[in-house]
Each structure stands twice: as C-alpha cells, then as structure tokens.
Design a protein around this nucleic acid. Sequence first.
DNA 1: ACCTGAACACCGTTCAAGT
DNA 2: ACCTGAACACCGTTCAAGT
Lengths: 199, 199
Amino acid sequence: MPTPDRTSLDDIVAAGREILEAEGPAKLTMQAVALRVGVRAPSLYKRVKSRDDLIGLIAESAVSDLALRLQRASTLEGRPDARQYLVALAHEFRAFARANPAGFHLIFASAPSPTSPDVILLARAAQPLMEATAQLAGPENALDAARTVTAWANGFISMELAGAFQLGGDVDRAFDFGISRLADSLAAEPIASSAARTS
Amino acid sequence: MPTPDRTSLDDIVAAGREILEAEGPAKLTMQAVALRVGVRAPSLYKRVKSRDDLIGLIAESAVSDLALRLQRASTLEGRPDARQYLVALAHEFRAFARANPAGFHLIFASAPSPTSPDVILLARAAQPLMEATAQLAGPENALDAARTVTAWANGFISMELAGAFQLGGDVDRAFDFGISRLADSLAAEPIASSAARTS
DNA sequence: ACCTGAACACCGTTCAAGT
DNA sequence: ACCTGAACACCGTTCAAGT
C-alpha cells in the first residue's frame, strides 16, 4: 500500500512564501521549507522541479493575491471619477507591497530569470489599472498610460522598500505628489510633441 | 621579504563587475573572481570582507559610472530648456541601464541589504536631475518632482529589463509617452489637490 | 605581508533503498 | 507512490603553514 501524502504543493508554496517574507531569500532553503511542512528536503522534489521553480510558484502566488486586491478595490470603490479610482489603485498597490515586500520584490524587481511569473496572471492583475487609464487618457493611450503609472508605482515602491529615499523630505507627500501629477498629466492634452516635430 | 602584491582591490571589483554583467549573479563566485585576477579564492579576503561586501563595492562602482554619465549629459547638452534637459537625462539613464543591466539592477532593484550603495554617491548621481526638476517644478517641489521622475524611470527600466512589458505595443513609444507627460505635469500647475480639501 | 592548500559548514540535487 | 539517508558537487569562509 502506498503511503498517504504527508504534504502538498500548496503547503510547500505557502511555507516558502512565509519563510521568504519572514526571513528573506537567503533563508529560503529547501531544508527550511521541508522542515516547515514536516518532510525531508529530497521529498520536495516530488512536487517541485527545483528551488528556482519553487520561487517562480511563490511569485505567481503573490501575483494572484495582488490581482485579487486590485479587483476588490475596483468593486469596493463605487466608481467615482477615474482620477480618484486611479489614486485608490495606487494606494492599494502600495499597501500590498508593504504587506508583502518580498513578494512584491519577486514580482517586479527580479532580474530576468526562470522565476518570473506567468504573463497571463500579470495581465489579469493589470486589468483594473487598464480600465482606469483608458477612462483618463482615452483608449488609444490606455496601454502607454498604464505602463507609465505601473512604472512609476513600481519604481517608487521599490525605492521605498530599498530605503533609497534618504535625502529627507516626506515620502508619503512624495507619493501623493507623484500620483496626483500623473493623473493630471494623463487626463490633460499633451502640451507638445517634440518628437513629432523633429521627424 | 614580503611577496609583491599579485592583485588589487580595483582589479577585484572590476573583475567581479565584468563577471556579473557577462554571466549573472549566480556565476559571481569568489572562485570565479579569484581565477580572473590570477589568485586563489581565500586571498580575496585580504581586500574584501565577504562576498556581500564585494557586491556592495561593485554597486558603488556602477553608481559612480552612472553619476559620470549624467554629469556629462548635463554639460554636453548646452542647456536648452529644462524640459529637453529632463528628457535627455531620462534617455541617458536608460542607456546606462542597457549597457549595465546587472549594475543597474544592483543599484535600484536590490532588496534592502548590506550591499546597498552609499547615500552620498547616490545623492551625487541625482544632482543633475534635481537641477532639472527644480527648474521645471520650482525649488519647493524639486525633491518630490525628482522622486517622481526617478521612480518612473527606475520602474520603467526595471520592468523593461525584466521583460515585464509583454502586452504588446511599442516600448520606445511608451517611454517617450511617459517622460513627455511627466515633464508636462511637472511644469504645469496642479489641477486640484483633493487631499487639501478633505482635511 | 600576501598567498595557498586543507578543512569546515552549508547549500541544491540525485538516487537507491525502504514502506 | 511517496519518503528517506547517504552521497555528490559546489558554495563561502577560516586558518595554519608557507614564502
């Protein structure tokens, strides 16, 4: 008779994610994960191809949570104007990053690697943002606008988490300043396109 | 008679940086660095406290190069209007990241760690940007504006290097769109401060 | 004073042997 | 079919012994 399963893939990913958030990537060893799910390290390879594979699964788990959060914000908000909606999304994004700094880092700040999360998952997470930018900047600029906002938010939060804002000043104020000006500029007509003039 | 030095700290850092750019962080082993500078791994510890220490020195070396590039751009540009200057800085920043992706990642996308580069070096690198944003947004908003631009550029390039822009569209166009709208919004008067109204 | 081989602790991963 | 101990290759790091 085969022995009953003593753990599961979900358990392993959850354990890995907890270790990653609590102790950092260096402590995320196969042995530590195995210990937490009550098994020996070699057994993990029955459910996971490698440590990199496990990290990829952890990243996807984090992306799913992020997508859920943004979707919930999109329904909870009662849909005021697009500008307020965009600001709310930005704050939700930042809240996720603060609650899951290691997961956030895994999703957005990882070097190109086999651990990067799935495209489809990322697209789903970006969906609420695309709606907001389409309303603000028009459908033809929705993608560029979403990329601008994502890049800004991603970069801001990465730097905040990395402790890169060390020149003083109020970081919260800088965040509000940034999303506010971005929303303004997306809603406004572009002032001048110097690129078009020089071509 | 003591033996003459067979390597130097500069050699070690340069070798480490070359390996990092050419083969990625996983291949940046003490043995690989030692081999490249013609010495055995234990000898490295005469000039470097640890592998993390070496990574920190590599990051500082990259920051210095970045600062040099931005300063050169600031003198070469002949100082047209502040808007064009800001756009030039953004493109220079992106060019640096493309030429030194691993170094860029080390500077801006690293988790908070003992490998983070020195504050003073980062401040010096940010100097040209601060001047441009001060002209565009006024001195009282220079810091917030510089943070907005840095966050955007950093996030955009991080995502580009990570291959995160997978929803199609023209990435170059998105970059131009972003810096253009940002420059507009920094130069413009803010439309409305909803935060001020609710307090 | 710098360099080295040997050693140690600790990884990820494989695999034959158990149940 | 899952689990395990033992083993392997490969790290970072230390240190006594060389020159």
